[in-house]
Amino acid sequence: MNREQAGRVLGQLSARDDAIVFSRDATEVSWRGLAFFSNYRLCRLTNYATMPTFTMTYLTDGTEYIALDGTANPIYTADEKDPLMLTEENILPYIEFFFSHVQGSEGEVFLVRDPHKMPFINNFTDAQKQSIVQNFKPVNVQFDAAHNAYLVEATLHYGGTLMDASIAVMPDGKISFERQHLLLSGIHFPDSPYGRNWIEG
């Protein structure tokens, strides 16, 4: 994407009825492809004219822009428009992408792949670290051929707790929790586990 294309993105977005205003002179436009989509990709706008900076992220096929608003709806809308290509290799990236953009009443969900590399691990006491490592259940991905769905067993951080959960991902991208079990409480992250990095895709 060159400067001209970035200007076009701002132009396309500003033409929408529900457009959020961004500075033409001080907005960074960046994008990233997502392996599970053919046509849609992530587009991030950050307005440096305001303090603090203001960021919105969209799913786009270059024509339509779907704002990611913290609920599952926009992702499901994109899933319908651009049928997903889920594989054993990209099922975890899809789940991580989903959780990094969808929140519940207790905040963000974070899938812990490795307890030693969990965000803010060094903020916890030695006893807490030990409990986290002991309670951690490794990620396990299975394909349920009968339902054409993936079943992912994983340790999740949500609302200051670690949970062992079974996540079903249907072929259309819909996610459901088949089972959830509390492993550990009092594990509060001081900030977002996702930071502002482009970990999404």
Binding site: M1, N2, R3, Q5, A6, G7, L10, S23, R24, D25, A26, T27, E28, V29, S30, W31, R32, W198
Partner: peptide, 8 residues
């Protein structure tokens, strides 16, 4: 005056 772009 045009917005800068971060290449990815």
């Amino acid at each position: 005056t045009a917005p800068a772009v971060k290449h990815t």
